[in-house]
Write a protein that binds this DNA or RNA. Structure first.
Length: 213
DNA sequence: CAGTCGATTCACT
DNA sequence: GTGAATCGACTGA
């Protein structure tokens, strides 16, 4: 028996392409997170592209730092960052090494291990909210900075890997401005999602924070 | 070295 | 719809 074509690991060269090619192609792919408690799986429904040092919206815009160094490394690895004092978000590094581009994983449908995800997302009132939003996605899959730099293309049953999936019909792939991104990069239509999918997070424009008194 | 603010989420009105 | 939570990275002095 041969393995299902829907369960083939994405090859490294999938991630070596331009971030704007990789991002929409990730829709429908399967993200597998393996923990001691068991595996959890997600079908990706929403992503955002960040184009490295030339992109004002990217963490890599001002060059290499301790936080973003994984983005400057080889494609097919995970860049995890901590934000708002309490959340983690995850990206897949892509493009040629040194380009520092990546795809933020913003939403997905839980397709396996839902009981494990629910334990980590007690505030979710419905399964469609388990991974609806980048920090919810990372929280639900138990992803934090201990996974920063992990290789999703490595063979075998690793802590994190990504497989081919059922791609959405091309007519259902939408694009628009990135959520929560301000400044010069705010209008770039580099967010990609599957139309009408209930696990896609709502768009929000960037809001500059008001000073605390 | 202090000030600022974030690729967000949740509770509450 | 509005605001609080919460801390570490980054910036500029």
């Amino acid at each position: 028996m041969s393995a299902s074509p829907d369960r083939t690991p994405l090859p490294r060269d999938f991630f070596e392409r331009s971030v704007l090619e990789v991002a929409p192609d990730l829709l429908g792919c399967t993200l597998v997170r393996r923990t001691p408690d068991g595996p959890m799986e997600l079908r990706l429904t929403e992503v955002e592209a960040y184009a490295g040092e030339v992109d004002p919206g990217s963490h890599a815009y001002r060059g290499r730092t301790a936080r973003n160094e994984v983005m400057f490394g080889p494609p097919g690895h995970v860049y995890v960052y901590f934000t708002y004092g309490m959340w983690h978000c995850m990206n897949l590094v892509c493009g040629p090494e040194g380009r520092a581009s990546g795809v933020l994983l913003r939403g997905g449908e839980v397709t396996a291990g839902a009981e494990l995800v629910r334990e980590r997302r007690p505030s979710a009132r419905h399964d469609r909210e388990l991974a609806k939003g980048p920090a919810r996605l990372a929280t639900g899959l138990d992803v934090d900075r201990s996974l920063n730099g992990a290789d999703v293309c490595a063979p075998g049953e690793t802590v994190l890997s990504i497989l081919t999936g059922t791609p959405p019909h091309p007519d259902l792939v939408r694009s628009g401005p990135r959520t929560g991104v301000g400044g010069a990069g705010a209008h770039q239509p580099w967010r990609f999602w599957i139309d009408s999918d209930p696990t896609v997070s709502p768009y929000r424009a960037h809001v500059p924070r008001r000073k605390r008194t």
